[in-house]
């Protein structure tokens, strides 16, 4: 099969055509058709200046995250301490009548799931997909919260795998207020710093519960992923 198509030679053919094609020089966009010599690429440090503004104080960042969350219908609760966070988690569990939860091992999730006292599916080291599908909630930690967009950043290595945050009908994120970053450029800088010498196989930016507008452009939550997203963040 694959061997028969000689992938190496096709690779060389495509690269050869590209090199040949690039011998003609194209004008730089926004320069009125002019070919600019030795263009070294965009000035990436300016990106932050064009994107939507976010203040750099803790208060401004939390306000921005809260506002984005309200728009997105993310249930965001910023609480004083870990104990309050656990109380909030338990009240959500009670309200929704959780029977079984899915999570992954970290100090915070171990403690939180312990306090919930419900049967827990741990994803570490592998799990049964059908069993996870039957869980009421996936509880995970994250790598960062992005104030600018109300986004949660997590990876397959640090967030309990690929499915935990998308398969159960409710995703709960447990976070620390120190994890709040200002904007998207800061979030990507953080990912590079944290994983630069070995990236996980998946990194995701989650912004609100799953949604669709495919039927008459009317918003419906919970298209395929979670219908609910809760972010509990403590100081």
């Amino acid at each position: 099969m694959v061997e028969g198509t000689e992938p190496m030679s096709e690779r060389e053919r495509i690269l050869g055509r590209i090199r040949e094609a690039l011998k003609g020089r194209a004008p730089l966009p926004g320069h009125h058709g002019e070919v600019v010599e030795n263009f070294a690429g965009p000035e990436r440090e300016t990106f932050s200046q064009w994107l939507p503004a976010v203040g750099n104080t803790k208060k401004a960042k939390f306000e921005a995250f809260a506002k984005a969350s309200a728009d997105l219908k993310t249930d965001f609760r910023h609480v004083a301490d870990e104990a309050t966070m656990i109380r909030e988690l338990r009240s959500v569990a009670k309200e929704e009548g959780w029977i079984k939860v899915a999570s992954h091992h970290t100090d915070l999730t171990d403690m939180a799931c312990g306090k919930l006292g419900l049967p827990t599916l741990w994803t570490d080291g592998g799990y049964d997909v059908n069993e996870m599908e039957s869980c009421d909630v996936g509880i995970s930690v994250c790598d960062a919260l992005v104030a600018q967009t109300g986004t949660i950043v997590l990876t397959s290595r640090t967030g309990g795998g690929r499915a935990l945050s998308v398969l159960p009908p409710h995703h709960v994120v447990l976070a620390h207020s120190k994890q709040m970053v200002r904007d998207l450029p800061a979030a990507f800088a953080l990912l590079k710093e944290r994983f630069g010498d070995g990236f996980p196989s998946m990194m995701t930016l989650i912004t609100g519960p799953s949604r669709t507008g495919d039927i008459e452009r009317i918003l419906v939550l919970g298209a395929h992923g979670p219908k609910k997203l809760t972010v509990l963040c403590h100081d």
């Binding site: 397959s156 290595r157 690929r162 998946m202 995701t204 519960p209 799953s210 949604r211 992923g225």
Partner: peptide
């Protein structure tokens, strides 16, 4: 809502 980067199959330390 979801912007996800994929760079490989399941790695040794992933579940």
């Amino acid at each position: 809502c979801y912007n996800t980067m994929y760079g490989g199959p399941r790695q040794a330390d992933e579940c």
